[in-house]
């Protein structure tokens, strides 16, 4: 592989950028079914055949009252709109039931109509709950979402998780490159440290001139490093399960690209560093900024068989 060796390893920590283009972190959990919730229900089917309808007292209020779908489906509402001779087919206000509705709402028996009415209410509630949950999940942290964050997470994760901070609030303004090097043991027993290899540059070369870059070139290393950086503290110590997973993931990515033999020796340990270079301000802007690359060197990691491409552990 065309390795680009970089000398020097200045220290320097740059906070990993969070704002990533189109990066939605798929995390995960169990599917949510329809849940009941206190939102308004659309009352059930109010079709009827005879215009001489009665309004049961106490039900005079808005048709959008929750909890009454069954009652309203008993078709004894005075449905003024029925007077409209244009009423959708199905409001057979005059002229018998059969030409009735496209879906034959009016043709249904009472129990069927009650059933449909209840379903309408359940579906309406489910939609309201779903939309509310997703909204609270994607909206910025706010009074309501903070208060109900557990409920929202339980509902949305894992399958409805989403993140639409696309190039926002600010687009990434620096190129984050991942460099790696290895300590190899030669056949004569000597050890040697290779130069730094800019893995990201290799990805960049693969992306250039490519109308449809592969996820392996555009996302794999970029997102793996993001994952790694997010789950490591500023002393490069892993945080929790994900910290440990991300470390092994990085090792496996590097080993897949390095192979087990490098520079005529077998790879014993590897080391990574990030190299963060700010994007040059646009030509028309007066901004001045330090464009020097900053490096964050990670500890040496021993390579075990679990880190090699052949293993699935």
């Amino acid at each position: 592989m065309g390795m680009e060796k970089t000398k020097g390893s200045r220290e320097g920590m740059e906070p990993a950028a969070h704002q990533e283009p189109g990066a939605a972190d798929g995390d995960a959990r169990a599917p949510g079914g329809a849940r009941g919730g206190g939102s308004r229900a659309i009352p059930g089917n109010r079709e009827r055949r005879t215009p001489a309808a009665e309004e049961p007292e106490g039900r005079g209020e808005p048709p959008t009252e929750p909890g009454e779908p069954a009652a309203s489906s008993t078709s004894i509402r005075a449905d003024e709109a029925d007077g409209d001779s244009n009423g959708p087919a199905g409001h057979g206000s005059s002229g018998g039931g059969e030409e009735a509705g496209p879906a034959g709402l009016a043709r249904l028996s009472l129990p069927a109509r009650i059933f449909v009415a209840i379903t309408v209410a359940v579906v309406a509630v489910a939609v309201a709950v779903h939309v509310t949950m997703v909204f609270l999940h994607v909206a910025p942290d706010n009074t309501v979402s903070r208060q109900h964050s557990d409920a929202v997470d339980d509902y949305v994760l894992p399958e409805f998780e989403q993140n639409w901070k696309l190039f926002a609030p600010n687009p990434l303004q620096q190129n984050v490159a991942v460099h790696a090097r290895a300590a190899v043991t030669k056949d004569d027993g000597n050890t040697e440290t290779t130069g730094w290899v800019n893995l990201t540059a290799l990805d960049g070369a693969a992306v250039r001139g490519n109308p449809a870059p592969s996820h392996t070139q555009q996302n794999e290393l970029r997102r793996a490093w993001e994952f790694y950086a997010n789950y490591h503290d500023d002393k490069s110590r892993p945080v929790g399960l994900r910290g440990r997973l991300s470390e092994q993931y990085m090792k496996r990515i590097v080993m897949r690209r390095f192979g087990t033999r490098l520079n005529g020796g077998s790879v014993e340990r590897i080391q990574l560093r990030s190299a963060i270079t700010p994007v040059k301000p646009p030509p028309w802007s007066q901004e001045r900024m330090d464009l020097r690359t900053k490096y964050a060197v990670q500890p040496w990691w021993p390579v075990t068989s679990a880190d090699l491409p052949g293993s699935d552990s």
């Binding site: 048709p63 003024e80 409001h91 496209p102």
Partner: peptide, 17 residues
């Protein structure tokens, strides 16, 4: 009220039919 009811009733027919 008539407007609301009319709307609901038409909406109902629409989403079920």
């Amino acid at each position: 009220r008539a407007r609301i009811e009319g709307w609901v009733s038409r909406g109902l027919t629409r989403v079920t039919s």
